[in-house]
Design a protein around this nucleic acid. Structure first.
Lengths: 230, 230
DNA sequence: ACCTGAACACCGTTCAAGT
DNA sequence: ACCTGAACACCGTTCAAGT
């Protein structure tokens, strides 16, 4: 008896959580957050919903796993053999760049900050601050604040990138639009913004992010440090 | 001829954008982000979808307006007659508290940072930093970094609160769970986290947030300041 | 001008049924 | 054990029709 023709060709190799997460990341990177639907994923993987749900708990689990992978990869790229301040800057920039390259991570960062890769970050920041001889209680606060700053700011930045991508405008055009808006503000009510409008053209998110890191480090050393150790 | 009975009683007073935003905020505060559906909103307002869409562009617009209202209200509560450092701390805490009291704002903060109320924040931070005699270019960076820190960290914090609310666990229980997880980590690989587990019980998000603000301000004054002016 | 609400085009998730 | 895919219970949004 003739077998019924299959609607879709069935995949021959086994599905795995890894493959699912990897494919999800590809869709997210290529077409953005909204493009990752379970329908799109079943299509791309030539499989059904049940198969996916057999390997991941739900869509949130999938997104968290994808974000965790990217963050973990960014962390292994950081050279840790340099001087502590330099290592911290490198770590911060690596995370900033990773989050900017995969803006969909932004939404995940705020979904419970105790994912595996975040442990890595916290531990690493703690290690560098300890090398700077920050006393223990201060280290606790400083590491937390620094980590919050990095993830918070990078996340905000990624969100901006996402909004720009959705609207289809590039960074320069978006900045010009904001500058025009600020320039239109009442100089009596918003004197600083009105003035800052002229300077927005030279604004660089990455540089400003790093400037913030430096201010933070300067603050940490001023308040808690025992001076330079080189 | 008898008029057909109405399915639902029609509202007698006119609808307004203000009333819609206000009602949305009530639903968000009472029952969380997921509870705000357009269906719930039409029900509560005894109206139809078209009526809502006549006053707001879409759901995103509605959420942005609600968040903007709360932030604006938090800003007007800040006393600005104190010393600049104190005013900045008060401003930061007021925003932190507002975002924590309305955790759904967190998701909005990252949806394009140029909403009206954010202008107010930036202007106010700039004003206080100027009073601290920070030179202009440094002021640009410092104000941006400070604003990013405040919104980023408060947003992260609100997200944690949201996750806790969804899972129905209180803060103490959540902290205890994290502490247990950290304690289980390999002390060789995560020495600092393993050790920090014991200290998590005394962790206070709000205090740590403020500690970060202080480090930031110390950094700003160290790098750019001209000493105390009092 | 302002509003109604059935209908549309999607979602994520479940689950009986297959191999 | 692993997978299929129709079906379910939702969404946000539209739009012809009413007043």
């Amino acid at each position: 008896m003739a077998t019924k023709a299959r609607r879709t060709p069935r995949r021959t190799d086994a599905l795995s959580r890894e493959l699912i997460v990897e494919t999800a990341t590809q869709i997210l990177d290529a077409d953005g957050e909204d493009a990752l639907t379970l329908r799109a994923l079943t299509g791309r993987l030539s499989t059904g919903y049940g198969a996916l749900y057999h390997h991941v708990a739900n869509k949130g689990d999938l997104l968290a796993a994808a974000a965790d992978d990217v963050i973990a990869r960014a962390m292994t790229d950081v050279a840790t053999d340099a001087e502590p301040r330099e290592t911290l800057r490198a770590l911060a920039l690596s995370l900033f760049d990773a989050i900017n390259a995969h803006p969909w991570i932004g939404a995940q960062l705020s979904q419970g900050p105790w994912q595996p890769a975040l442990l890595e970050i916290y531990e690493s920041i703690g290690e560098q601050l300890q090398a700077l001889h920050i006393p223990e209680q201060a280290l606790f606060d400083s590491a937390g604040a620094l980590m919050n700053y990095i993830l918070g700011v990078a996340g905000q930045n990624a969100a901006n990138a996402r909004v720009r991508a959705d609207k289809g405008v590039d960074r320069t055009a978006a900045l010009a639009a904001v500058a025009a808006q600020w320039a239109r503000l009442d100089p009596a009510r918003y004197p600083r913004l009105h003035k800052a409008a002229a300077r927005l053209g030279e604004h660089d998110d990455r540089r400003q992010f790093l400037a913030g890191i430096d201010l933070f480090l300067a603050g940490i050393e001023t308040v808690h440090g025992q001076g330079e150790d080189d």
